[in-house]
């Protein structure tokens, strides 16, 4: 039995893990929105696909960390196919077209998941060393959650390095502000949109396999995550990466706390939080489109 300190540590770490998963999903959504003004309704489904592919890879005997690399890449390839076939041709049309298209895609992916993996919940089997617990400040905290937290930090660090230090990253940041000028510098914007979509899908897939061990993998996970990540990007400001960081931690924290004290109403509390923030800041905490 944990003492008060243990409970605080538990809640804090759980908040960070949950917020971290929200963050990776929401950042993927925001990269796509910030660069292409596409609200990818299939993002949650892609997250679920990442989790299921991760499950299958591990179940077929692949090392968890190898699966962690391969599953997101497969989701990225799926994203590439989606982008080239149905998103790119709609680029010049209004946002409503891609909204409806990706909404349809969500049903297609959800249906495919049920067709391939069925309705029953799945679990990713973790490597032995991740199965135990570690005593930290009066609580026994699951090792796999600590590893998840570490992975989230690594992924975010890698993303920041990519956006800030590589030429492609700089092109993406510039394109989120004045795309027209980027094209005048010789950059084919069609590839920028493609790259953004694929990167967003890779992030969704990554989040999926990372979250796999935290939750049960079932056909509902995508829809739930889509809603949570919408809440995060709306609170943080559409397209804003920094806003997403703050909002994801906030939502992760509030949801964890709420689940601890009043279980059933956790999501309701999160929506109330969103409503209150939007009432005072209609464009979210950091405003729209701050891609940094």
């Amino acid at each position: 039995m944990s003492g008060t300190l243990g409970i605080i540590v538990d809640i804090t770490l759980n908040s960070l893990v949950l917020g971290g998963v929200f963050l990776i999903v929401a950042i993927g959504l925001n990269i796509i929105y910030g660069l292409s003004r596409i609200m990818n309704m299939a993002h949650g489904a892609l997250y679920a696909v990442g989790a299921y592919i991760g499950f299958s890879l591990v179940a077929s005997g692949l090392n968890f960390f190898a699966a962690l690399l391969i599953a997101p890449l497969i989701v990225g390839v799926i994203g590439l196919i989606i982008e080239r076939t149905i998103i790119a041709p709609m680029r010049k049309r209004s946002m409503a077209y891609t909204l409806i298209l990706t909404y349809g895609l969500m049903f297609f992916l959800d249906g495919s998941i049920k067709y391939i993996w069925g309705n029953k919940p799945r679990f990713i089997e973790l490597p032995e060393f991740m199965q135990g617990t570690l005593p930290i400040l009066g609580t026994d905290y699951p090792v796999f959650r600590l590893v998840t937290l570490l992975l989230i930090i690594l992924i975010m660090g890698a993303l920041m390095l990519f956006l800030n230090k590589t030429k492609i990253g700089i092109i993406l940041r510039a394109s989120s502000t004045i795309p027209e000028m980027v094209s005048c510098l010789g950059v084919n914007m069609s590839y920028v949109h493609m790259g953004a979509f694929v990167l967003g899908c890779v992030m969704a897939g990554l989040a999926g396999i990372i979250a796999g061990p935290l939750t049960t993998i079932d056909p509902l996970m995508g829809g739930e995550m889509l809603i949570s990540s919408f809440v995060v990007i709306v609170i943080g400001g559409l397209g804003s990466l920094r806003g997403a960081v703050i909002a994801a931690l906030l939502v992760g924290g509030v949801q964890t706390l709420a689940e601890f004290f009043i279980t059933d109403l956790a999501m309701v509390i999160v929506y109330i939080l969103m409503a209150v923030i939007l009432a005072f800041m209609p464009r979210g905490l950091l405003g729209e489109g701050k891609f940094e």
């Binding site: 004045i178 094209s183 005048c184």
Partner: peptide
Amino acid sequence: QPHKISRLGVAYVPAERHIFPGL
């Protein structure tokens, strides 16, 4: 498209300057 024209060696300095913020 603009990127192809740019690659012919045409540089554009727009009236708004269009310096990328955040860069």
